[in-house]
């Protein structure tokens, strides 16, 4: 600790000067997380529901997409979008690559969450819907999904925090996110330990905020099912 002090003395003024850029970095990280999670959510629902289809080609197609994006690393997917796709004539903005890669990768994991949650709603609920003359679409929308949502929130919370923690990868494809900016700070000050300690603290803070938001969502979802005080 004592060794850090002299460095910290020079570090603080640098940090103060770098604050606007750090704030921008936080915004970029938040933006990538929110947009990536939004795309992942849409894909999770689409792929998760399609993989329960009665039609083999539909189900098979959805399963293939899910297994592909779960089975290849986010790192490789991101590099492919950023470095390989331009060679085929499609050039995407770095942030667009990031959002697409995060959305596809976490959407594939999310699809398994959606599929599992829908399957976990008791068959008796579907039967009650049939007995009331409800068609398949209505049963899904009004009976099964509202109950499945409560089961999805906790696993989605994990995925969301994991997605946030995966965003430092984006700095490797020139997205000026928080990690990118802290790295700049580190190279200009040489205060490696202090810079990365700050980075740890900032990610932890963001993860805590996300968790608290998701916990509130989970309580609301449980209350809607009449399971007050659950979890």
């Amino acid at each position: 600790m004592a060794d850090l002090l002299p460095v910290a003395a020079g570090f603080l003024p640098e940090l103060r000067r770098a604050l606007p850029r750090l704030a921008e970095g936080v915004l970029v990280t938040v933006e990538a997380t929110v947009l990536g999670a939004a795309l992942a959510l849409v894909l999770a629902y689409a792929l998760g529901l399609l993989s329960r289809s009665d039609r083999l080609p539909v189900r098979g197609g959805a399963r293939l997409v899910v297994e592909f994006f779960r089975g290849t690393s986010l790192y490789v997917q991101l590099f492919w979008l950023f470095f390989a796709l331009p060679m085929l004539g499609f050039r995407l903005e770095p942030l667009a690559c990031a959002v697409l890669a995060l959305g596809l990768n976490y959407g594939a994991y999310g699809a398994e969450v959606v599929r599992g949650a829908v399957a976990a709603v008791p068959r008796a609920q579907t039967e009650a819907g049939i007995a009331l003359g409800m068609g398949a679409g209505l049963r899904l929308r009004r009976v099964v999904l509202p109950q499945a949502h409560a089961l999805m929130v906790a696993p989605f919370k994990n995925l969301l925090v994991q997605l946030l923690k995966a965003t430092p990868l984006l700095s490797l494809v020139t997205v000026p996110d928080l990690t990118f900016q802290i790295d700049q700070l580190r190279s200009s000050t040489g205060a490696t330990a202090a810079s990365y300690l700050l980075l740890l603290g900032l990610y932890f803070g963001m993860a805590v905020v996300l968790s608290l938001l998701m916990n509130a969502l989970e309580r609301a979802a449980k209350a809607r099912l009449g399971q007050e005080g659950g979890a």
């Binding site: 008796a124 609920q125 039967e127 009650a128 007995a131 009976v143 509202p146 109950q147 409560a150 809607r224 099912l225 009449g226």
Partner: peptide, 10 residues
Amino acid sequence: VFQQFNLFPH
């Protein structure tokens, strides 16, 4: 009407 009622809990 079912043995286990099967009301919609939500």
